[in-house]
């Protein structure tokens, strides 16, 4: 009898729980109807600002040979290759992104430009100090700049160099159709303070070897 009484109390409590769950479902439906799109927007916003930063080279980046676009892009702030200029004894890691923090690690790649192999303008930059591109202004026309990535090796030949004010943003404009590497650094290199000019090299793709 005692066990039967306990069972009936438990059953009665479960009935209350079931009604509680029905209330929850009703509230969830109301919230979904009233705020459904805002909730998914809020969740995607939270996930956008949730960044798990790493410094690992992305091993599975592949280039689609038909569309000439990467099938997956590196995470912002991560290294995806190396940039070397043999004639200047330069060999630096190449990162996706161009914040000041990223540029302390090596060469930055402007997020508004194309990637090597995509047939468009690639814009890269680095500091003008020792250990970076302090001697970029010594580069000669015809010198090679090589970008090595996990998906291929791309060689660019310098065709032109320019010195422009930092405000002349059209000097680093991005287009599609002909693959070009724009690599620049602050200029001049032997002054104190914030350099107000940029030394820019313009190089065309002359060789591409895909992995």
């Amino acid at each position: 009898m005692h066990k039967k009484e306990n069972n009936s109390i438990i059953l009665a409590t479960i009935k209350h729980l079931i009604v509680a769950i029905m209330f929850i479902i009703l509230i969830a439906v109301i919230i979904f109807v009233l705020f459904g799109s805002r909730i998914s927007m809020a969740i995607s916003l939270i996930n956008k600002v949730s960044i798990d930063t790493s410094n690992v080279v992305l091993k599975d980046v592949k280039l689609n040979s038909i569309t000439k676009r990467l099938e997956s892009y590196p995470e912002y702030g991560t290294k995806y290759g190396d940039l070397s200029i043999d004639s200047l004894d330069v060999d630096l890691p190449l990162y996706y992104g161009d914040t000041l923090s990223i540029l302390r690690n090596g060469v930055g790649h402007s997020s508004g430009s194309y990637f090597p192999g995509e047939g468009g303008t690639i814009v890269c930059m680095a500091h003008n100090t020792i250990g970076y591109l302090y001697n970029l202004s010594d580069i000669e026309i015809g010198a090679n700049i090589v970008i090595t990535t996990t998906y291929g090796k791309f060689t660019y030949k310098v065709e032109e160099t320019k010195i422009v004010p930092e405000t002349q943003v059209d000097a680093v404009s991005v287009s599609h159709g002909e693959e070009m590497l724009i690599l620049y650094t602050c200029y001049p290199t032997n002054t104190f303070g914030h350099a107000t000019k940029r030394f820019i090299t313009y190089s065309k793709l002359v060789d591409a070897q895909y992995n």
Binding site: V19, A20, I24, I27, I43, I46, N47, S50, D52
Partner: peptide, 22 residues
């Protein structure tokens, strides 16, 4: 019922939030 529903809703919402966001 009110108290159980509120408690369960809070716990379920917290769980779902944890699953869908980082």
């Amino acid at each position: 019922i009110s108290s159980m529903a509120s408690g369960l809703f809070i716990l379920i919402a917290k769980f779902l939030l944890g699953q869908s966001t980082d």
